[in-house]
Simulated scan of single mutants.
Amino acid sequence: MAGEKGLRSELGRVRGLGSAKEGVNHWWRQRLTSLALIPLSLWFVGSLVFLTDTDHATAVAWLGSPVTLGLMVLFLGAMFYHAALGLQVVIEDYVSNHGCRKALIVLTNFACFALMVAAVVSLLVIAFGG
């Protein structure tokens, strides 16, 4: 009967298309990082405004505070992770070659991770005077 087969083609039923089970997880991670970035971004911009008229020693002392350093690391981590997730979606949408797509996603994830590590190490050097 036609009603039992539904609207999917024979090939679609065999392949199991439409049930990758990874898109929802990616979508949720993107949304959670964006929610985390709202207060962290407001805090960051407010901090920059506060620090506009301060000298270098005051800014270094401010960054050396455990709360400030922790919030800055959280901000950088969420920002680079959110960027990696967003860039992955762009690559998946616009790069048609499967091998090239995978290579670009790996390269993008590596670059975002390397930039995050470099930023956190820089913060630690500034905060602890290394």
Rank of each mutant, 00 (worst) to 15 (best):
D55E: 03
E10H: 09
T52K: 11
F113Q: 06
N109F: 08
V73H: 00
A78K: 02
S96C: 11
T52Y: 04
N25Q: 15
R15M: 09
V45C: 03
E4S: 11
R15L: 12
W62V: 06
S19Q: 14
K5H: 12
T33I: 01
A78Q: 06
Y81G: 04
S41M: 00
Q30R: 13
L42P: 01
G86I: 04
L63P: 01
R29S: 11
G64L: 02
M1K: 08
L107Q: 06
G6S: 06
P66V: 10
W43H: 01
L69S: 07
L85A: 05
F128S: 07
A61K: 14
L35H: 05
L69H: 09
L124Y: 04
F80Y: 13
G77T: 15
A127M: 03
L87A: 15
I126M: 12
L63N: 03
V73M: 08
G12E: 14
T52G: 02
A127V: 04
V120Y: 04
G16Q: 07
L71N: 01
Q88R: 15
A84R: 03
W28D: 15
M1L: 11
A20K: 08
K21R: 15
C112W: 00
Y81R: 13
E92W: 11
F113T: 12
V24Q: 13
A2W: 09
Q30E: 13
A118F: 13
D55T: 02
G46W: 00
L51R: 01
D93W: 15
V60H: 01
T33R: 04
E22A: 06
F128N: 10
A83I: 12
V125E: 13
C100A: 15
L123F: 10
S47N: 07
D53C: 06
M1Y: 09
L123T: 04
A20E: 13
H82G: 12
F113K: 09
A78D: 05
T33N: 13
L7F: 11
Y81K: 11
E92C: 05
G77K: 03
F44N: 00
R29P: 01
A57D: 14
L48Q: 10
A103C: 09
R101T: 03
L115I: 06
G64W: 00
K21T: 14
A78N: 10
G18I: 06
A61M: 12
S47W: 03
G6K: 02
A111D: 04
P39V: 04
K5R: 13
V14A: 11
A83E: 11
V89N: 03
N25H: 14
G130W: 07
L69D: 03
G46A: 02
L11E: 12
G18P: 00
L63K: 07
G23H: 05
M116E: 08
M1I: 11
S47L: 10
V24C: 14
W62A: 09
A119Y: 02
H56Y: 14
E22C: 09
V14E: 06
L115M: 10
Q30T: 14
R8A: 10
R15E: 09
